[in-house]
């Protein structure tokens, strides 16, 4: 249906499931898509190591895009704040990469149960030539008939996992033995408490403030992103079955630990501006 589709591979659990499904769907051929990772240069080191290992194992070529301009300006979450960092190193970087390669369909692992404005997403979500989402003018989406027709410059974001919940993802990971980044599993890790979040000091770019002392805690991550913006949760769940059991009892939402989501409608605003 599309001239140049790409899978957005963010290294997280949803991306891992998405990639697994794509490999299965096209078997015995290889998925006829490019794979793209937008690297903000602030991802957990374990994520990058996992990414490189997986790509070698699967024998799939991966495009990695970094916003060089943003990097040259030294944009980061500490110096510029979470909003500016995400806007430039993630949203703008994604747009750059899509424009650079001329991708007309970007397939991602976002799910409707992640966040209230995502619950309003279509499976085929239209973006204008400037990559904007118009939540009030979405195409009706009937049965399983998707309208991927584009006017010049427009593109589509495709969310095949829209109807999956966090629990569905983990159940499927268990069933299919899909490898995921070890950060999802609880371990003793050195974390600092900052703004109510438990932050893993992944490298020395995180400078400790007075009175901040890293402490050893049993934690894991429910979502993965830029390490300074992603809070860990206290947990002893070190296996997939333990995670599934923990989720059944959880009273908090998955993205609760994400600094960038907070504030009224901030996810919606980011999405309108072209965030995935």
């Amino acid at each position: 249906m599309f001239a140049k589709p790409v899978i957005l591979y963010s290294i997280g659990k949803d991306s891992s499931v998405l990639l697994h499904l794509a490999i299965k769907a096209f078997h015995p051929a290889k998925p006829p898509f490019a794979l793209l990772h937008v690297d903000t240069t602030w991802k957990f080191r374990e994520m990058i190591a996992f990414r490189d290992r997986r790509m070698t194992e699967l024998g799939l070529p991966l495009l990695v895009h970094v916003n060089r301009e943003g990097m040259a300006r030294g944009i980061g979450p500490f110096s510029h704040g979470a909003a500016v960092h995400t806007d430039i190193m993630k949203t703008a970087a994604l747009k750059q990469a899509l424009d650079l390669h001329g991708f007309d369909a970007a397939i991602g692992g976002a799910r409707r149960d992640e966040e209230p404005s995502r619950a309003k997403e279509r499976i085929f979500s239209l973006r204008s030539a400037s990559h904007r989402w118009d939540p009030r003018g979405q195409r009706p989406e009937l049965w399983h008939l998707y309208n991927g027709r584009l006017n010049p410059g427009e593109s589509i974001r495709v969310f095949p996992l829209s109807n999956w919940t966090e629990l569905d993802i983990w159940t499927y990971i268990a069933r299919e033995s899909i490898p995921v980044v070890p950060l999802y599993f609880a371990a003793g890790r050195m974390v600092v408490r900052r703004n109510g979040m438990l932050i893993l000091r992944d490298d020395e770019r995180l400078t400790l403030q007075p009175k901040e002392t890293p402490e050893l805690r049993w934690v894991r991550f429910r979502t993965l992103g830029c390490y300074p913006l992603t809070g860990a949760v206290e947990s002893r769940a070190a296996t997939v079955p333990a995670i599934i059991e923990e989720l059944a009892r959880s009273r908090t939402s998955e993205r609760q630990g994400r600094a960038i989501d907070h504030g009224e409608s901030s996810m919606e605003r980011k999405k309108v501006e072209g965030y995935f």
Binding site: K120, R136, E264
Partner: peptide, 13 residues
């Protein structure tokens, strides 16, 4: 979940 929905008190999508 949309800002306009909360502002206007109606469901849009």
């Amino acid at each position: 979940g949309l800002q306009a929905e909360r502002e206007q008190g109606i469901t849009i999508d």
